[in-house]
Write a protein that binds this DNA or RNA. Sequence first.
DNA 1: TAATAAAACGAACGGTCGTGCTATTATGTG
DNA 2: CACATAATAGCACGACCGTTCGTTTTATTA
Lengths: 228, 228
Amino acid sequence: MKTERQRPKATAPHSHRTRREIKAPARRPRGLKTRRAILRKAVNLASLEGLEGLTIGKLASTLQISKSGLFAHFGSKEDLQCAVVDEARDIFVERVVRPAYELHGLKRLRALCENWLTYGEEKVFPGGCFFSAASLEFDDRPGRVRDQIVELMKKWLGNLEHAARDAQLAGELKKEVDVRLLAFEIQALAMGANWSSRLFRDQSAFRLVRGAILKRIDQATGPVQSRE
Amino acid sequence: MKTERQRPKATAPHSHRTRREIKAPARRPRGLKTRRAILRKAVNLASLEGLEGLTIGKLASTLQISKSGLFAHFGSKEDLQCAVVDEARDIFVERVVRPAYELHGLKRLRALCENWLTYGEEKVFPGGCFFSAASLEFDDRPGRVRDQIVELMKKWLGNLEHAARDAQLAGELKKEVDVRLLAFEIQALAMGANWSSRLFRDQSAFRLVRGAILKRIDQATGPVQSRE
DNA sequence: TAATAAAACGAACGGTCGTGCTATTATGTG
DNA sequence: CACATAATAGCACGACCGTTCGTTTTATTA
């Protein structure tokens, strides 16, 4: 009853992504700009230090705003972490998933792989793949953050698998190919590239994995190779 | 000059694993027993909470000893982390590497894979593969801990690659197989199994990956299959 | 321009972190 | 038994954590 102002979203159960512009689209509340700026920095920081290592004080001093002012935007650290994950998701979708959705079947599958490799190579997040790190950091921490990451990862694997299945239905992949396994192998190789490039500070891991994934896909397309 | 007692190893540059039993082998200092007990617990805790999330206070209260008493065994948190990594290494070598070294060539390669999968399935560390987690946690934290992890991982990949190369030289693998890539793919799949099993709380990932690795190796042995 | 509400601030809280000192206890040796 | 020494405990420090609260600044609008 008393703590109402600094937790504006606490009562609303789950109203993702639709904040307040629904009823007043031209109001442009000044807080949103700051919030976006905070999240942009927070995502980068979290990719380097981890979602738990991301501290409100450090983030605030980096942005040169007050700790309490920053805090008021979120209401709790967990809410901040959730917002950061969501922001990272948006960036990932924009860079990796969405462009591939203009294609279908095998082409989409190839595009998803290539976009991911580019996303890794170009260091979209300075600390490497945000979700690889977050997955391993939160696999033992029950809570909303973990739930969110699980859901995102399921969707990503589902995207790979769906594209592969479409390709199979279109005759672009051999009938005996296990599309679920194929998706898993691609994901494992991609995470391996991220792991190796970061731990050994060696970007050539992406070259290696690009070759491995291509080989794996070619192998699944059969001797006919992917038409065109 | 004044802080000398609680950092007994600080002056010695790098005397791993040979502590003080070198000159008095029968003395059996009582501290070692406690130290081992601390490390055993610390490894488990660190695998769950991460090497940074592993806290001296929590560790001490878990073991029901005083924080300062525990601290005196190591002298700094970084030293503790190094000791924990070393302890985890010992366990890993004992479970995965050493048993395979009774075999050679392709058999050793297969044994390394199978031992790793068993090590993952049986939850040797309650938080999953210690080194997968530590790798991603420390890939951006320069220091002795990171250096140690890098070295261990290089050795592990080297082990896989070496076994594969021996197999190739013995004619058990096709000549055109890239043993470095093969080692990398195995490692990526293994880490993928760890990742998936933990994030989705689904042990079947190990079944999936066992199949994938076997297929990958069979494919490298050629149509003749591994003799015997 | 005055009123109003949102946003940012500053200071402080209780807690925990790693670490450093000093004292106490246990152990092995003369 | 006395003594030296190693092992452990007790206590406190400064720093930083997430969080709260009251105040001040800033922007909107009547």
